[in-house]
Amino acid sequence: MLDITNLSASYGEARVLTDVSVTVNPGEVVTLVGRNGAGKTTLLKCVMGLHRDYEGGISLAGAPVDKRSPDQRAKAGIGWVPDDRGMYASLTVAENLTLPPVVHSSGWSLDKVYDAFPVLRERRNSMGTQLSGGEQQMLAIARVLRMGSRLLLLDEPSEGLAPVIVQRIGEIIREIKKEGVSVLLVEQNVKFASTVADRHYLLAQGRVVEQLDNADFQARESELLVHLGI
């Protein structure tokens, strides 16, 4: 679904990512694990087209997207869930949901979204930023599900949320995986990552230092925690 080949990215003079290759297969959940500053969010931004200062190639379902703008990439099926959840203060909950265009016939209907997240139906006329952190995260995920994105980029969806909500987000990820949606997940919460992902890439100082399947990942969890310093 997504192929990142030999990607290097910089902010001006500062090199942030070096020679990173990551693959996400259709219907697969893959995590990028690493400490702060390892370049995880930058990698997602490169995929979305929000960070253009990179070399190497990104292709979606076999087609290169490097020359495409962020809105074209979104229309091609990449759904971005930013780490700040991306709420609009001047838009209501319902408007936050329906702002992006539906890009694929598999997009959830508004009813399906509201059935899956009843709190969003209740609060559909509130402003986006009046929701709690967990509710905002639900909305950010629901928004890309409604678009029908085939590849979700989730940036630290569990950050700062209560365990029960993290659990619910895990359920949602497993559910959309069943629908054949691919997920590239940036996560520092190693426990959470191991409950949802098929494979993991460990990032350190802008490089992929290791690639593990979930069984290995779980077996070496405590060692990895030390290694990553998280």
């Binding site: 979305m48 087209g49 929000l50 703008s69 962020p70 809105d71 990439r73 979104a74 229309k75 971005w80 930013p82 991306g86 609009y88 203060a89 001047s90 838009l91 702002l99 992006p100 265009p101 890009v103 928004r143 678009m147």
Partner: peptide
């Protein structure tokens, strides 16, 4: 309104700002 508030993010949500 969305483009006024956050132009970059609005692009990433598939809108040609």
């Amino acid at each position: 309104r969305a483009a006024t508030e956050e132009p970059e993010r609005t692009r990433a949500l598939g809108i040609n700002v």
